[in-house]
Amino acid sequence: LRQRHVACLARSERGLGFSIAGGKGSTPYRAGDAGIFVSRIAEGGAAHRAGTLQVGDRVLSINGVDVTEARHDHAVSLLTAASPTIALLLEREAGGP
Rank of each mutant, 00 (worst) to 15 (best):
R4P: 04
V67Q: 03
V59F: 01
G51V: 02
P84S: 12
R30F: 09
V67I: 09
R58E: 02
T80N: 15
E69I: 07
G44W: 07
T68Q: 10
C8K: 14
D33T: 11
G96E: 14
A70P: 03
A82Y: 11
A70R: 03
A46D: 14
L79S: 00
G44E: 10
A94R: 14
I62T: 00
E13G: 13
D66G: 05
G45P: 05
R4C: 06
A47C: 08
R4V: 09
A34W: 15
F18T: 01
L89C: 13
G22W: 00
H74L: 12
E69D: 13
P28Q: 09
V59D: 01
H74V: 14
V38Q: 02
A31F: 15
R30H: 10
S83A: 14
V55M: 05
G25P: 02
L88D: 00
G45E: 12
V6E: 12
A75F: 03
G56E: 01
L1Q: 09
H48P: 08
V55G: 02
A87V: 12
G23Y: 02
V65L: 07
E13Y: 07
A50M: 08
G95Q: 11
V59Q: 02
R58C: 04
V6M: 14
F37M: 04
S77N: 13
H74W: 11
G96P: 14
I62Q: 02
H72N: 08
V38C: 05
T80W: 08
L16F: 13
G17I: 00
D73M: 06
T68S: 12
I62W: 00
T85E: 13
I41Q: 03
H74T: 14
V59E: 00
D73Q: 08
E69P: 00
A10S: 12
G44L: 05
E93S: 08
A81L: 09
L88I: 13
A94I: 12
A87Y: 13
G15I: 03
G51I: 01
A94S: 14
R49W: 08
L78I: 07
L89K: 10
S26L: 03
A42P: 08
V55P: 06
A47Q: 06
E69M: 10
R14G: 13
A82Q: 14
G15N: 07
L1C: 08
L78E: 04
R71Y: 11
I36D: 03
V38A: 01
V65W: 06
R14A: 11
A10Q: 15
S83M: 08
C8G: 03
V76F: 07
A21R: 09
G45H: 07
A42G: 08
A46F: 07
S83K: 14
R2H: 06
L88A: 03
I86H: 06
T68P: 02
D66M: 05
L16Y: 13
L90Y: 04
G35Q: 01
A7K: 04
L53P: 07
G51C: 04
L53I: 15
A7M: 07
A7I: 14
A94V: 14
P97Y: 10
T52L: 11
E91Q: 09
T80K: 15
I20Y: 01
E93P: 12
L79E: 03
P84L: 04
V67Y: 02
P84V: 06
D73R: 06
R40E: 15
A46T: 11
A81P: 06
I86E: 02
E43D: 15
A10Y: 10
A10M: 10
S77K: 14
R14P: 07
S83L: 08
L90Q: 02
V76M: 11
L79V: 06
T80V: 11
G51E: 07
F18Y: 02
G96S: 12
R14S: 09
N63C: 04
Y29M: 05
G17M: 04
A94K: 14
A46W: 05
D66R: 05
I20N: 02
P97W: 05
A82K: 13
A94Y: 12
S77M: 11
V76Y: 10
I20P: 00
R4H: 07
G22A: 01
T52V: 10
K24T: 11
V67G: 02
S77G: 15
S12T: 15
A81T: 13
A7W: 04
F37Q: 01
R30S: 08
A70S: 13
E43F: 09
R71T: 15
A46I: 13
S39C: 10
G56D: 05
R71A: 13
H5M: 14
R4T: 10
P97H: 12
A70E: 07
H48T: 11
G64L: 01
A46G: 08
E93N: 10
A31P: 15
L79G: 02
A10L: 11
G23S: 01
H74Y: 15
T68L: 04
I36V: 08
H5L: 14
R49F: 08
L90N: 02
A31D: 15
R92F: 04
V59Y: 03
G51Y: 02
E91C: 03
H72A: 09
Q54D: 05
I86N: 04
L60H: 01
R4S: 07
Q54L: 10
R71K: 12
L53D: 01
S19F: 07
Q54A: 13
D57C: 03
R30T: 08
G96N: 14
I20K: 00
F18P: 02
V67D: 01
I41K: 04
S39H: 06
G32N: 12
H48V: 15
P84R: 08
G95V: 13
V6A: 09
E43H: 11
A34S: 15
I62R: 02
G95R: 10
H5N: 06
V6Y: 10
G95A: 14
G22R: 01
D66P: 06
S12M: 11
F18Q: 00
G23W: 02
I62A: 02
L90T: 05
G15M: 05
H74R: 13
G35W: 03
T85Q: 12
A50G: 08
A10V: 14
T80L: 11
L16K: 03
A81G: 15
V6L: 12
A94N: 13
H5R: 12
A42T: 14
V55D: 02
L16C: 10
P28F: 10
T85F: 10
A34M: 15
A47S: 06
L60E: 06
A94W: 13
V59R: 02
L53Y: 03
R92K: 04
A82G: 13
S39W: 03
A21E: 13
R2Y: 12
R49I: 13
P97G: 14
A7F: 07
A75Q: 00
D57T: 02
H72T: 06
R92A: 03
G23N: 00
R2C: 08
A10K: 14
D73Y: 06
L88P: 01
E91Y: 03
I36A: 01
I20D: 01
R30P: 04
Y29D: 07
A46S: 12
G23L: 00
G32A: 05
A87I: 12
A87T: 15
R58F: 02
A94P: 14
V38R: 01
V67M: 07
Q54M: 12
L88C: 04
H48F: 14
A47W: 04
S19Y: 04
T68E: 07
G64W: 02
A46V: 11
T68W: 00
V55L: 07
I86Q: 03
A94D: 14
D57W: 02
I62K: 01
L60C: 08
G45T: 10
L9Q: 01
V6P: 02
T27N: 11
V6N: 08
N63W: 03
P84K: 14
A87E: 15
L89Y: 09
S39A: 12
R30G: 07
G95P: 13
A34N: 15
L16W: 11
L90P: 03
L88G: 02
L88Y: 00
D66S: 08
T80Q: 13
R4L: 07
V55R: 05
A42E: 13
A31V: 15
R71Q: 11
R14Y: 10
D33S: 11
A46E: 15
T85V: 09
Q54S: 09
A21V: 13
N63F: 02
G44Q: 09
G17A: 04
V65Y: 09
V59C: 02
